[in-house]
Design a protein around this nucleic acid. Sequence first.
DNA 1: TCTGTCGAGAAAGATTTTCTTTCTTTTCGA
DNA 2: TCGAAAAGAAAGAAAATCTTTCTCGACAGA
Lengths: 306, 306
Amino acid sequence: MRNLTRLKSLQALEAAGRHGSFVGAASELDVTSAAVGQLVRSLEDWVGYPLFRRTRSGTERLTPVDEAQDALEDIAQGLDRLEAGLRKLRGRAARSVVVVTASQALVANWLLPRLNEFAVLYPAIDVRLDVSDRVIDLGQGEADIGIRCGLGSWKGVKATYLMGEEIIPVCHHRLLPQGEQATAGWIAEQTLIYDGTAHPGGGFPTWAEWLARAGANQAPSHRGLKINSTAAVIHAAVAAQGVALVRKALVAQELESGRLVQLLPERRWPLKWAYYVAASPKALRRSEVGAFHDWLISKGVAQTGE
Amino acid sequence: MRNLTRLKSLQALEAAGRHGSFVGAASELDVTSAAVGQLVRSLEDWVGYPLFRRTRSGTERLTPVDEAQDALEDIAQGLDRLEAGLRKLRGRAARSVVVVTASQALVANWLLPRLNEFAVLYPAIDVRLDVSDRVIDLGQGEADIGIRCGLGSWKGVKATYLMGEEIIPVCHHRLLPQGEQATAGWIAEQTLIYDGTAHPGGGFPTWAEWLARAGANQAPSHRGLKINSTAAVIHAAVAAQGVALVRKALVAQELESGRLVQLLPERRWPLKWAYYVAASPKALRRSEVGAFHDWLISKGVAQTGE
DNA sequence: TCTGTCGAGAAAGATTTTCTTTCTTTTCGA
DNA sequence: TCGAAAAGAAAGAAAATCTTTCTCGACAGA
């Protein structure tokens, strides 16, 4: 049970003892000397005896009485420790860290390729990535910003639309038929890679559904590959292990670099789900979080324009 | 240069961290839980990030984030040290000490013989005697109460009349003439002890002045003893080294015990100076100082009645 | 399923602490 | 003698702290 009171007076007492004057202490504490004097005298009234001997001349007007001198050592140490603690509390804020959470696939394939631009624009802001496929509670401050795929109606957080998403078939160009365009029928005969992390209710098609809509007469072949990681699905496609149905945003780099080829581009399957930038209102009040948020949105807009 | 702020919030943070809830901290700090919550949230706003993870259930609702946990150790130590310092400051007051200053002669001969009565009446009050023949500045808190001999008009202190004083000749009964009363003439022939600390302006007579007023035909003998200490003057008289002119109050015990005899009691020499109990208004606001002050006055009244 | 309890949080207002300003007093030095 | 410096007193302003009331979510029990 702690019994501690008159913290401001203790602070004033310690500074006055160190400076030997209220004026000196006031300068350090950035208040008037009258304020320091009142705090000390208030403490003297409370303890019941004078804490300083006063002289009317010289620069050292205040000499602690023995009891006060003894106590001042403890008080000074206490204030030192409090200051150390406060410095630690402020340490993170001083570095302007934004903690961003997103799935591995999005981080690896969409965010990381762009993040260097943010670092150039805002050199004083550190971005810490919390890569996780689990849902992180932004309301509880586990992260400042989340990039999430969904309908954008999460409680307690502000969700801003980033970009839409569609499902596309892709494969490595080594698998393409020679001298011909790929057809739905052709796709039906290939090794088809399944993404086992597809979210229910998000409108993700199975291969059968996609082929049917694409007008293929055949059911999917039995040579399938089911993988429980979106990132690994993409990796397998890049390794020419088959044709994969993937979210377009997550393979943007691969399409651009030519490591993957989109098949039947005229066949589109937009998702009901989209990507949103989510953050708690509290976190958004911090300038570095706001800056990152706005930059992200601008990347989304640029993406939509492509 | 110390840079420390939001002390109350640090205190609330530390208690909340220890209790794992605002309600627990509030009980310890004797405030409402809403107050603790606001102090902590205010600190969170200031540092720019949440200091606790919140859960909505259980008795431990608050878990410090890593940065806060690290800082809390320093903060707790700091508060401990401040509390130790405050305990020391209050230590003297808790013991109810009254610092009393008076001359050695008055302490030894008047105050000490009476002080035991005060101790019996007020067992919780410690009296510290500052025995000094120099003038101690009560306004500066070097002592709480002074018993002073003078006209009672000292600046900055309240002086209350204690008792008058007169000058009397005394000697040890061994020196008395056999079968006769001592006369002024007889006294004039003895070894006369002079008090060298007699204060100018106080109306202290020399031996010549006293003898003249007592009607002696002779000048004082040349066998004199001049001593620069009132207490030593009295001591010499008790040791039968001569006849001394002393302040009556200071030899009250010796007269009563028979160690000294007053000569020619009908010959009185009242002083313009008297004894006063002096104290600064500030000191008198403390109950133990007031108690001692009032008790002293009652002793003076009792003395006058004798 | 409903109700009650517990505790964090928001909001408004009350109370206390802290601070500023102005003036006085004392001491010292030029 | 005058001016500067600094503590102290007093009054009032500003800020911090605290209380009260209500809401919400989670949980337990009937």
